[in-house]
Design a protein around this nucleic acid. Sequence first.
DNA 1: TAGTGGTCTAGACCACCTT
DNA 2: AGGTGGTCTAGACCACTAG
Lengths: 259, 259
Amino acid sequence: MASNEVASSAKAKYLQIADDLAAQIKSGALAPGSAVPSEAELMQRYAVASGTVRKAIAELRTSQLIETHHGRGSFVRSRPPVQRKSSDRFRRAHRKAGKAAYLAEAEVSGGTPSVTVLFVGPTEAPADIAERLSVPVGTQVLARKRRYFRDGVPTEEATSYLPWDVVKDIPEMFAENPGGGGIYARLEEHGQQLAEFTETVRARLATKPETAALALSPGSPVIHLVRDAITSEGRVVEVCDTVMAADQFVLDYRFPAKD
Amino acid sequence: MASNEVASSAKAKYLQIADDLAAQIKSGALAPGSAVPSEAELMQRYAVASGTVRKAIAELRTSQLIETHHGRGSFVRSRPPVQRKSSDRFRRAHRKAGKAAYLAEAEVSGGTPSVTVLFVGPTEAPADIAERLSVPVGTQVLARKRRYFRDGVPTEEATSYLPWDVVKDIPEMFAENPGGGGIYARLEEHGQQLAEFTETVRARLATKPETAALALSPGSPVIHLVRDAITSEGRVVEVCDTVMAADQFVLDYRFPAKD
DNA sequence: TAGTGGTCTAGACCACCTT
DNA sequence: AGGTGGTCTAGACCACTAG
């Protein structure tokens, strides 16, 4: 049949369908975790072709309202509460109490945190990292890459880079678990008095590998944070490169109104 | 015809096409600003149906590699340099020199900044803002909403909320242009000694209105920043709610390793 | 095996932009 | 007017997941 009464002045059909479903989700008629009606059913209900239903579904997916699984169906997303990353988290008091930064936070944000160490070992410093560490590009540094979870869901992946001469006499740095208080506590025990941190924050869409690593749907935003740990002598002794699922985090900063 | 030799074990055709075009863009064969071949031509070149080409194009669009304009075509995006928002930007020295924060920054980041005031006037405080200002929800406050541009391109939209009793005797607050040094300079002239700022940073996808306001393509990420300006008496005298195009900004923070 | 989403076709008509 | 992208149809076959 060729009865194509296509979108005219009104809104596109697929958007109307998406809006309708979105309203049902927001009203709770479609509860979090529940299945969205199948494409076949939606085709019948709205009397449209498959392509139109699929575009509506795609719309909801990029709005992060649903997630769809091949062969199973589409399901309403449940938005877990976000974690807060406060600049307070590096307080020396926390380190002395034996807490690593990520644990100092998890206490406040609820949920059960866990970490997996993905890699610990020597690496050639990438250009941007090398610049921050003030070493030549390609210099051997220690990399510590780990993935953080909350309630079993991956939320964050972080890689720390440390100059070799700083870590070579600190055996804990090469262990999966660097001990109470984390690597910052170890650095301070070995004469590296931490004075200051700088963080640069960007937001962008996740790359393919990041969507895989953090179990994100494509088109999800991430926060990319790079932190320099600076000693009282002004040396950068660690650069930490972190990618976070954007919907999982709120960053808090506090700074004085300087002169 | 029904010769559907559909995706088998290999990659989907539309992804192959997208990858091919992406490679051409990255290699420079398709230069920034230049037109991507039309759908009709791509259909011929790759010998596929229109829908397949459109999916490939959609892929590139959500990767932020191209932008498409109805009736004109698709064009390779040129990535403009990013602005840096340093926490240094609120230095009192800058205010005394007559510079508003956004100008203090633009100096460093290149490009010509401009501002449009969208609204200045009394508003009922939304719930989250009211909480930060420690006033009851719905209390009348002064709202100042403006849009920032760089080289004529919208990059940021910000709304400041100030308690009525703070601003009622500061006539400049109701003007489009609050005068040299911006509203923070006016506040300090009227006895509000600013001591501290707090910022909370989130990243998420742009809403429909935000894509319109900031001329973004749908699915683009934004940075949502909310700043409290706090006086030496501990009162929050301004809350600034800002939405930024994520690809335009890098946020810089610096903080001491506190005890 | 039945049901689900994923890919693809070969068209159609519409809306926008340029000439 | 002619080209461009935007929407839509009515099917087809494939791949994944469940019972």
